[in-house]
Design a protein around this nucleic acid. Structure first.
Length: 690
RNA sequence: GGGCCCGUAGCUCAAGCGGAUAGAGCAUCGGAUUUCUAAUCCGAGGGUUGCAGGUUCGACUCCUGCCGGGCCUACCA
C-alpha cells in the first residue's frame, strides 16, 4: 500500500513538472521525513530543480505545493525548511486500506526464476558458513514467492570433486581397520564398513573428522597426494568400486545435509550433480559451441601450452575506447563473438578451461551447467525422486536415465546463484562466457548473489580449542577451515540453540507438555538462527560468537516472535480470535474513528506503527531489487520494536472507551498480521506461547 | 603486481539514488504505578564516520591519493 501511494505521488508530480516547467524528470527521489509529524513522504526535488530553473529551492517548492492538484489518498503537501516538500497521506483512508489488507497486485515479471543455493560439498557435515548461504538463499526464494514469482530451488552437488575424493582416500588409507586384507576383499569390506557407519546417526560428523585426518596425512608426506589423484581419476571415470564408494559417501552425506536444512525449513526442488554433467557429456556440447564462438583460445606456447583458455573476467581491455556516450546498452559490444578474436591474452589474464591433458576444469563444467540453466545447451538431465519432505514435497536428483514423468527444470528466464564472494571471479567468467556465446540477454539475467563468509571471533576459536598465535588473537576474525576440522557444525549450533531455548521455556512454562515445550524451543532456536544470519548485510563478514548467536534479546528473532505472542495474548485474554478480528478490523472501526484516534500526540505514535505495518510489500520489493534480505530483518525488528512500545504505552483490554478499544485492537491485529508475514518470509514461525 | 570488498560509539552492526539533528543492539549505570507474562519498556553516558584533498546548495554515501585489514589472482574445486 505504501509503495502504491508512493508511485501515485510520483506520477502526479511528474505530470505537474512536465506541464508547468516542461521538464521530464526520470527519477524523482522520494524520502521519509525525519519525524512522523512532518508527514509520510519527503521530496527534495526543489533542490535539484533550483539550478535548472534558476530559482530559489524554497520558491520552487512553494510553486509545486500550490500547483499540484489534490491527489487521491493524500491530505496535503507542505513546504519545509529550505525547500523540502513534505507530503501527508490521509491517515484514516490508508489505515482503512491496511485493515482490509488491500494490496494492489504488483506486476510480476514473466518467466520462472532459478535460485541456486547451499551447494555444499557432500563430503562432511555442513557448518555455519553453509548456514549463511542456505538461509540467505532460502529467504530470497521466499521473498520471490511472496512477490508472486515462480521459483525453482536448486542445490548443486559436486559429488565427483576433490573433496569427496579426499574422504574416499580417508576410508582407504587413514582408517585403522585392525585387520589385514587380501587385495580382493579390501574394497568390499570398506564398503560394508561405510554402510554400517551410514546407518548410524550423523555420518557427516564421522566424515568431518576423517577429512581433517586425511588432510593431515597429505601434509605429512606430499607423496600421499598421489592417492588423491588416482582416486579422483577413478571417480570421474565411473563404473568402478572406488566410484561406487564415492557415490555411497556423497549420497549419504547429501542426505544428512538435506536433513540438517530441513530442520530449518529449507527445501530444494532439484539436485543437479556433477556426475551427470560429466556422464551426460554436457561439456562436450558446451565445448563445441564455445570453440565455434571463439570464446576459447588454444594456447600453443607459454605456461598454458596445450590448454584451452579464456580471458579471465575483469581483465578485459576497454574495448569501448572513446565510447563514453551511453547508448542504453553498454554490453552490446560483447555480444559480438568477434570481440573475442584470437588476439593473445597475456598469461596472467588466462583462465584455463581445458587442461593440456584434455580434462575440463570446474569453470568449464559450470559454463555448461549455466547454459543448461538458460536452456541454451540442447541437453537435459535424467531425473528421479530422491528425498521426500514431511510435507510430501519431492526433491528430485539428476541421473543418467531417469523417470519418464518429471517436472521441467532449467530453461528459466532468470537465475540467482547464492555463492560466497570468493567465487566472484569464477562467476563472472561464466557470465562472460555466456556473453561471448552471444547470449547477452542471459548474461544480464545472471545474478551472482554474493555474500561474505562466516568466520569465528578469536574468543570463539579459543573456546573451540584452537591454538591461537598472538597475531591471531589480534585479528577481528579467524576463518574456519574444513581441512583442519576447525569450525562450528550446523547441527551442533542448532542443538545448542534448542538447548538454550529449552531452558527458558521450561522455566517459563512448566505447565506445558514435553512435546509442546520441545516444539516451542525449536521454533525459537530457528528464529534466532535465521534472524542472526539475516541481520548482517551481505558484504559484512560475520565474526561468529556463541554469545551473540545464542542471544534471544534485543535485535534478534525471538524478540520479533515475542512481539507476536504478546499481540496474540491480548486477543486470547480478551476472548477474541485475532485472525477473525483482523479480517473484520475495517468494519470494527469506522473511518471517522480512525481519523479521530490517529490525530494528536498519541495518534502520531500509533500512526507510526500503522505506517510501518503498511510497508511490507515495499520492503519485500526493495530486498529483491537489491538482493539484500537484511532490509527485511531490519524492518521486522523495527516493527516489533514499535509494537512493544505501543504495547507498553497503551493498555488495551482495560481501555474504557469502547470505540478506542476497538481501534487499539485493530492496531494490534494488523501489526500481528504483518509481523507474521515478514517473519514467514524469513522462514521464521511463531510459537503459541513464549 | 592486478581485481573485488571492508574501515562508523567500548563491542557487533544500520544509515533507501547524495538530503533535515549519523541510528540500533550488546555492554555499563539509573529507573518502570504488583497491568494484555519483564525474552519487555523508559532514561543516561558514549562519534573529528581511518587520513588528506576534490566535486556541490548539501558527502558516512560520489571522485582522486594515501593508511590499515580481508578475499581472489593454481593445468584445485
Amino acid at each position: 500500500m505504501y509503495r502504491h501511494l508512493e508511485r501515485r505521488l510520483v506520477e502526479h508530480l511528474r505530470g505537474f513538472l512536465h506541464r508547468t516547467y516542461g521538464l521530464g524528470i526520470a527519477n524523482i527521489v522520494v524520502e521519509q521525513p525525519p519525524r512522523i509529524e512532518f508527514g509520510e513522504y519527503a521530496l527534495p526535488i526543489a533542490f535539484e530543480l533550483a539550478r535548472k530553473l534558476r530559482k530559489a529551492p524554497r520558491k520552487i517548492a512553494e510553486e509545486i505545493v500550490a500547483g499540484v492538484a489534490a491527489i487521491p489518498g493524500f491530505e496535503k503537501l507542505e513546504v519545509a525548511g529550505g525547500g523540502y516538500i513534505n507530503v501527508r497521506v490521509s491517515r484514516a483512508e490508508l489505515a482503512k486500506a491496511i485493515a482490509t489488507d488491500q494490496s494492489p497486485a504488483a506486476e510480476v515479471p514473466p518467466g520462472k526464476v532459478l535460485v541456486e543455493h547451499s551447494s555444499i560439498n557432500p563430503n562432511k557435515a555442513a557448518h555455519i558458513g553453509h548456514l549463511r548461504n542456505a538461509i540467505l538463499g532460502d529467504t530470497f526464494v521466499r521473498l520471490l514467492r511472496f512477490a508472486g514469482t515462480e521459483v525453482d530451488v536448486q542445490n548443486y552437488i559436486d559429488n565427483t570433486g576433490v573433496q569427496v575424493a579426499d574422504v574416499v582416500v580417508g576410508f582407504l588409507r587413514c582408517v585403522n581397520y585392525k585387520r589385514s586384507f587380501a587385495s580382493a576383499e579390501k574394497l568390499p569390506y570398506i564398503k560394508s564398513f561405510i554402510e554400517q557407519h551410514i546407518a548410524q546417526p550423523r555420518f557427516d560428523y564421522y566424515c568431518w573428522d576423517l577429512y581433517a585426518r586425511v588432510s593431515q596425512w597429505y601434509e605429512e608426506d606430499k607423496a600421499n597426494l598421489q592417492a588423491r589423484a588416482a582416486t579422483l581419476h577413478s571417480i570421474e571415470e565411473g563404473n568402478n568400486e572406488t566410484a561406487a564408494i564415492a557415490d555411497l559417501i556423497s549420497v549419504a552425506v547429501l542426505n544428512r545435509h538435506l536433513e540438517t536444512m530441513d530442520r530449518l525449513d529449507i527445501e530444494y526442488d532439484f539436485l543437479p550433480r556433477e556426475s551427470e554433467i560429466l556422464h551426460l557429456h554436457f561439456w562436450d556440447a558446451a565445448f563445441s559451441k564455445l570453440k565455434e564462438a571463439g570464446v576459447l583460445n588454444y594456447e600453443t606456447e607459454g605456461k598454458n601450452k596445450g590448454c584451452w583458455v579464456m580471458r579471465r573476467a575483469g581483465t578485459a581491455k576497454p574495448l569501448t575506447t572513446g565510447d563514453t556516450e551511453d547508448t542504453g546498452s553498454a554490453e552490446e559490444g560483447y555480444d559480438d563473438p568477434v570481440s573475442f578474436s584470437p588476439e593473445r591474452i597475456s598469461e596472467e589474464d588466462q583462465k584455463v578451461i581445458v587442461r593440456s591433458n584434455g580434462t575440463v576444469g570446474y569453470v568449464g563444467k559450470d559454463i555448461a551447467y549455466h547454459m543448461w540453466k538458460f536452456g541454451l545447451l540442447g541437453r537435459d538431465f535424467g531425473y528421479r525422486k530422491f528425498y521426500r519432505y514431511p510435507n510430501a514435497h519431492d526433491c528430485w536428483i539428476s541421473t543418467t536415465d531417469g523417470e519418464k514423468d518429471h517436472p521441467h527444470f532449467g530453461d528459466v528466464a532468470e537465475i540467482y546463484n547464492v555463492i560466497d564472494a570468493r567465487q566472484s571471479e569464477a562467476q563472472n567468467t561464466v557470465i562472460e562466457a555466456l556473453r561471448g556465446l552471444g547470449h547477452g540477454e542471459a548474461a544480464d539475467r545472471y545474478t551472482h548473489f554474493s555474500y561474505e563468509m562466516v568466520a569465528l571471533t578469536p574468543r570463539c576459536a579459543a573456546e573451540l580449542g584452537y591454538n591461537l598465535s598472538e597475531e591471531d588473537k589480534a585479528r577481528s576474525w579467524i576463518e574456519v577451515s574444513g581441512r583442519k576440522g576447525f569450525g562450528v557444525k550446523a547441527d551442533d549450533l542448532l542443538d545448542a540453540l534448542i538447548t538454550s531455548a529449552r531452558k527458558e521455556v521450561d522455566a517459563r512454562h512448566p505447565e506445558l507438555s514435553e512435546p509442546e515445550r520441545a516444539g516451542i524451543a525449536t521454533q525459537i532456536a530457528i528464529g534466532a538462527l535465521r534472524y542472526f544470519m539475516l541481520k548482517f548485510t551481505k558484504p559484512s563478514v560475520i565474526a561468529f560468537d556463541f554469545k551473540d548467536a545464542l542471544s534471544f534479546e534485543g535485535d534478534t528473532g525471538p524478540y520479533a516472535q515475542y512481539a507476536v505472542v504478546r499481540a496474540s495474548n491480548i486477543f486470547r485474554k480478551g476472548g477474541f480470535d485475532p485472525d477473525a478480528f483482523c479480517r473484520d478490523a475495517a468494519r470494527q472501526v469506522s473511518t471517522e474513528d480512525f481519523a479521530k484516534y490517529l490525530t494528536g500526540e498519541s495518534g502520531h505514535d500509533i500512526w507510526e506503527l500503522w505506517l510501518a505495518a503498511a510497508k511490507t510489500s515495499y520492503i519485500v520489493s526493495q530486498s529483491i531489487a537489491t538482493t539484500e534480505p537484511a532490509y527485511l530483518a531490519k524492518h521486522t525488528f523495527q516493527l516489533a520494536q514499535l509494537f512493544n512500545t505501543f504495547y507498553h504505552r497503551y493498555p488495551i483490554l482495560s481501555e474504557a472507551d469502547e470505540g478506542r478499544k476497538k481501534f487499539l485492537l485493530a492496531t494490534a491485529a494488523v501489526v500481528r498480521r504483518e509481523l507474521i508475514r515478514v517473519l514467514a518470509a524469513m522462514g521464521i514461525s511463531v510459537p503459541p506461547v513464549m
